[in-house]
Amino acid sequence: MTAYQFARNLLDQGHDIYRVFFYGDGVFTLNALAVSPQDEINLPQAWHQLIESHEIESIACVSSAISRGIINPREAERHEKDSVSLFESSDIAGLGQLVDAALQSDRLINFG
């Protein structure tokens, strides 16, 4: 939730996000199958909308994602699974994308 609020605020202040990288349990934030109680925010849905509306590049770490069942069509085919759980606004890739983002950006901000 903190990362989401931080992202919204920095965009409001005119900064850009080069990439959001989800690692470890963070990949659950991209689970399109998650349902929240009606009176609570659906954080995955909120992130999905933010990512889509600002055309932010969003990546789930491949080893974190597939071991937690966060799967897109490509990984579903590769691992012979019959369902997909990753929001289509995000992609799955390796840790190199985190390092690349650190090198390409002015700042790297981590949230645990």
Binding site: L95, G96, V99, D100
Partner: peptide, 9 residues
């Protein structure tokens, strides 16, 4: 894993 990925760069 993150450190090893960084070393690759």
């Amino acid at each position: 894993d993150a450190a090893l990925a960084t070393a690759v760069f």
